[in-house]
Design a protein around this nucleic acid. Structure first.
Lengths: 334, 334
DNA sequence: TGAAATGGTGCAAACGTTTGCAATCCTCCG
DNA sequence: CGGAGGATTGCAAACGTTTGCACCATTTCA
């Protein structure tokens, strides 16, 4: 149970433990012969090194904190996946924290992470107020925000061009002949505001009359979408297509439509936003706007590591381009 | 940027830093007055504590490693979610590692985690060989295996009663009048062997003739299920229901069936295993066997923490009960 | 041949805590 | 009033590394 330390190896090798440390750290201040001898000895003795001690003196843990609302969410888990992979490839490990159970207490989580001496934090904000909550820490530790557009806050973030995303979808619907398109979902967080703005811009450009079906739910889910849509469908429709602000909402709409006997896309075209894995499932085949999740995660890691390793000051707003992925929930109007 | 340490606080308070430490750690060897004064001072000065240094001397990091094949997987992310929540509630943080990119190199990941001095490891094995791979570490650090049934290996694990799960499903199908039921999927890993065994037992019990459609894919996914099912459906059917060894496979089957014009459940009943979130989606509504994911994660954490904190020796095989969740992919035969 | 440069190694401090032990201060009782 | 004993507090070691500096041995060059 007692683990073997540098000292043990040093004693066995008959050198000082500084030498062992150097042999392992790839310092060039050591002869080839000694290095090889020591390296061999280390593996024989099963020496693994103690990252904690190392972190202590180097004042660097090679750890990055990842804060997500809830990892069980499809979108978050994909981000986490790519982030973990690329961070590890660069020698960093991920400390995972869900910020949801302590709803609105992201500051606690961030503080925790700082106590753990992580080198930096990647955070997917729960809501626009997240920013204010953790503002106090922002100059104490490198932080990169992911997925949520912070507009012109002086902080680094990587997000998708939400505005353009919706526009893309609208353009597509317009080309298919749709002239009465309903925008369905939240408009509260910045991200969702931007999506709605894209919708409005498209309306202006194409000369369409904006129609909204606003969600008051703080988080969009299939259930929320379903309930809202159910109510929507109980009223006469003056639209031929719905633009749902998230895929989850779109799935809820689908459910409500099915129940009501509304056929998609025959009676109603539907388009979502995010391209979560479920959207690609058989029978769902949701046409949607894709967020480049992998690129987003990878870029965020890059950005954070740049701050950490090169002490890069200032901030970057990295806006990624969304793309339309056509599946089978939209049809051309005759 | 320079963080404030115990010493700083001590100096400001005019006491030794041992006293500050005691004030914070809740030791009773200190007067109420001093404690309060120090605690106040700490928050004024923004002292957060340094977990790394703490870990160093206590030889305990309050960190647990979570190794999953790939966090993007719905099932894994749910496990991770519940594990993280309950671990954090107990004062532990999670270090997340995907074992997939270095396929079959879980030993590397485990070694990494040990170098990080995690107090214990929760691992969802990729395959039956995982166990052998990391066997060497098993007596150096507390490990609990999750989700994969290790049969009678002398190691702690928590898994679902896979055997019983399939049996449950078979019973249901039998009661619905099905007499020709095909078992579809892998039979390689222990988990899948057990599921297949449950199938066979049910066949024996109910006097049915076993029929198999074996998958040779190492991992089950919608795509794999789809391809295999497509081939299956190109041959004449001598079954009225399919028991898919995983929900992913079931979704693939659904897709292939749709393509071929086979209606579910009218022409074919279908049942899956796992109850991943996608199974509950509208239009999918897959009848399936549920793994109690939350209980699984929570129990695994409990078990691991018990080993860590109480040094509990020996091992426990914690077998959770699956349950049938009826949705709409099975129908009664007339 | 001698001095300078170079390469290899060891010494010891430092990182920020926790904690056993010793020291001090009170309080209270005989 | 003296001392016992408990309550507080301080001292210093320890945790396992990294790394600046000093030191020594060897090579190189004039």
């Amino acid at each position: 149970m007692k683990s073997v330390t540098l000292k043990d190896v040093a004693k066995a090798a008959g050198v000082s433990y500084a030498t062992v440390s150097r042999a392992l750290s790839g310092s060039n201040q050591i002869s080839k012969a000694t290095r090889e001898r020591i390296v061999r000895l280390c593996s024989e003795m099963g020496y693994t090194g103690n990252y904690v001690a190392r972190s202590m003196v180097r004042k660097k843990t090679d750890l990055i904190g990842l804060v997500v609302p809830a990892i069980e969410n499809e979108f978050m888990s994909q981000l986490a996946y790519y982030a973990e992979i690329s961070a590890r490839a660069r020698g960093y490990n991920i400390m995972l924290c869900d910020s949801e159970p302590d709803l609105q207490q992201e500051e606690k989580v961030v503080q925790l992470l700082m106590g753990r001496m992580v080198d930096g934090i990647l955070i997917v904000p729960q809501s626009p107020v997240t920013y204010e909550k953790i503002q106090a820490f922002l100059d104490q530790i490198p932080v990169v925000f992911v997925s949520e557009n912070l507009r012109d806050q002086p902080q680094s973030y990587v997000a998708v061009d939400n505005n353009r995303g919706t526009y893309l979808g609208m353009e597509y619907l317009y080309e298919l002949g749709h002239r009465k398109i309903l925008y369905f979902g939240r408009r509260d967080s910045t991200t969702h505001q931007l999506r709605a703005e894209g919708y409005l811009q498209a309306c202006r450009k194409f000369g369409l009359e904006p129609r909204f079906c606003d969600s008051s739910f703080p988080r969009s889910s299939v259930e929320n979408g379903y309930h809202l849509a159910k109510e929507l469908f109980s009223r006469p429709a003056d639209y031929t297509a719905i633009f749902a602000s998230t895929d989850s909402n779109a799935l809820g709409i689908m459910q409500a439509a099915d129940e009501r006997g509304l056929r998609i896309p025959e009676d109603l075209s539907l388009i979502g936003f995010d391209d979560i894995p479920s959207a690609a499932l058989p029978r769902i085949e949701l046409t949607t706007i894709q967020q480049p999740k992998k690129a987003m995660a990878v870029q965020a890691v890059e950005m954070l590591l740049d701050k950490i390793e090169n002490g890069t000051q200032g901030y970057i707003h990295q806006i990624l381009l969304p793309s339309l992925v056509q599946r089978s929930t939209c049809r051309a109007l005759d």
